[in-house]
Design a protein around this nucleic acid. Sequence first.
DNA 1: AGGATGATATCC
DNA 2: GATATCATCCTC
Length: 184
Amino acid sequence: MKIPLSRDFYNRDTTQVAQDLLGKLLVHHIDGAERVGKIVEVEAYLGPHDLAAHTSKGITPRTQVMYGPPGFAYVYLIYGMHHCMNVVTEPDGTGAAVLLRALEPIANLSDNTKGPGRLCKAMGIDRSHYGHDLISENFYITDAPEAETIEIVQRPRIGVDYAGEWAGKLLRFYIEGNPYISRK
DNA sequence: AGGATGATATCC
DNA sequence: GATATCATCCTC
């Protein structure tokens, strides 16, 4: 198996981690198969001061893991039917995370990986993965075997119009030209 | 453009 | 206990 990204990778500035996650591989061992997708689109949620972040409501049972140490999965159900996956960033207590929005299928994945809900469906991720440590053997993020040069595009985040001035901030990042972006 | 569908936060 | 609100997706 490959080597998961270290705790220190996640224990950094969230916008930096978000951009560094582009091109990395998300790996999940499930039902005897290794599902692998390349991360091509993400969004950064900076902490309680970020009005678009779930942690802006304070520590609750749902946001607890997002306030915890970095490198853990924050998975939640949205609109009653779709799961979304984040990776927690920055030191314990910060309340920041990066939402994974789209993958490029690499192995044992359907072609339907554009968008956070579809991403989780294709990877077999649900609320049972809430709080899962990504420094693990069966569910983790790792470097791509071959480093490639990518151009990163910055856009406002999707679906956060309620967040006032935070709605317009350029905290959505994706790989320029990649065909698996959820929206232009 | 509108509906599905249930957890969650926030109010009584 | 009731209700409004969702970091979405599918169908029309």
